[in-house]
Amino acid sequence: MGRFITVEPGINIFVEDINPAGRKTIFFIHGWPLNHNQFEYQYDVLPAMGYRCVSMDWRGYGNSDKPITGYGFDRLADDLRIVVGALQLKDFTLAGHSTGGAIAIRYMARHQGFGVNKLVLIDAAAPSSVDKQTANEFITATLNDRPNMLHNLTNMFFFQLITGPFANWFMQMGLQAAGYATAAIMATLRDENVYSELQKIVVPTLIVHGVHDKIVPFAKGQETSKLIKGSQLVPFQYSGHGPFWEERERFNQLLIQFVG
């Protein structure tokens, strides 16, 4: 069930809420430059097993409104807090992928993990984000030939072979975002990081990371795990940046075991 939630005057965030009567809730936060549809292969399985799956499109992405401002981690975490409040969520698992992982970490620190009882970080952009040169190259490519940027990103994203139609679906998700929002989030990844927030996380935390990740190297996951007390790091040996796609059955089973 899709709906819009207002986070600022004139700015509405699209929220997908599948199986609202589910016994436990998992809130998925997508990565750059995609949208909530990236978790299709979780939605195919988890709701039928009794889980409530909530997800949102960041401002500027997917079906959400696309303002020209508001793309820092603080504002994105605040948007998430408003959605959590509007849905009256409590005791839920927050699962963030890539940049969505950084947003989840900022949420945990800035809003004291409001409502969250477990955290899942999937190839999260942490502890640091994207180096200046790489980020600037992505920004330049985004503002000059975004389809080609997305094509190149697709080639970097996966370890396993994907079909042409799947690659096209990936690109179409990226093209649903505004170009300026795509560039703005990359600037945030260049200029901000969540290093100092990691030690503030006290809920049980599962860290999932593809061993062959070319976007956020596996070593970043190891470093994040060391900084979050008591966290569990699970390497995915046959994945790049998207284990929820490349090893979806294992990922789903691991998530079910962790959430309980």
Rank of each mutant, 00 (worst) to 15 (best):
V54L: 08
D145R: 07
R110T: 12
L189Q: 12
H212E: 12
S64N: 13
Y71S: 02
Y195V: 08
F170Y: 13
F73C: 04
M56F: 11
G70V: 08
G221A: 01
L161Y: 05
P20N: 07
I5C: 07
M56Q: 09
L161Q: 13
D145K: 12
N155P: 00
K220M: 05
D123E: 10
N152Q: 14
T163R: 03
R190D: 01
M156F: 09
G10W: 10
G31C: 00
Y43V: 14
G113V: 07
M49Y: 13
G113M: 06
L143F: 00
V54M: 03
D213R: 02
W169M: 11
R250C: 00
A48R: 13
N252F: 05
V54N: 01
H209R: 01
T224M: 09
Q172N: 14
I82A: 13
E197A: 07
H209A: 02
E223A: 13
D79K: 09
D123T: 03
I122A: 09
L89R: 07
F251M: 07
V259W: 02
P127T: 11
I13F: 09
A177Y: 12
I122D: 06
T182S: 11
K200Q: 15
R250W: 01
F258E: 10
D57K: 10
R59V: 03
G2M: 06
I185S: 08
G72K: 13
Q237N: 15
I256M: 15
F138N: 06
R250K: 15
A48C: 04
K132D: 15
V84Y: 02
F138K: 04
K90E: 14
E40L: 15
L119P: 00
H212K: 14
T6Y: 01
F73N: 13
S128H: 14
D131W: 04
Y51W: 13
R23G: 02
S128R: 14
V208S: 11
G113W: 01
G60K: 07
A102T: 06
N168L: 11
I122L: 08
Q222E: 15
F258D: 11
K229H: 13
S231R: 06
Y180Q: 12
Y238A: 12
L143R: 14
Y195D: 06
A167S: 11
